[in-house]
Design a protein around this nucleic acid. Sequence first.
DNA 1: CCCGTGACGCCAC
DNA 2: AGTGGCGCCACGG
Length: 107
Amino acid sequence: MDNSSPQVRIWQVVSLVPAGAVVTYGQVARMAGLPQHARMVGSVLRQLPRGTNIPWHRVINSQGRISFPAGSAQYQRQQALLLEEGIEFIGDRVPLRRFQWQGGFEN
DNA sequence: CCCGTGACGCCAC
DNA sequence: AGTGGCGCCACGG
């Protein structure tokens, strides 16, 4: 159903994640048809232009943690966005049991 | 073209 | 719970 480049498929998957939910890098990779390529997801998100409408902040690592140095400006920015959407943190991590998006249908 | 780096993930200690 | 090693691979120097 989709022959586009890995980069485009990653954008599409992340765009589907609803506010109030999160997904992991590895999960995005699998949903984009790129198993074992979690790292590429981070690489692609890193290149996103500023002001993009793609909800990049809803992507966190498999441990439920934000993949930026603790306390960095980027870390704080991402956490603020998640908190605004109702995501809860237990210490420095999001309990995936409750907030991880299960991809509704496609994937 | 080789090599280090890194928004990752998994597994072994 | 931390640390370390490895697989993967796009990028930049």
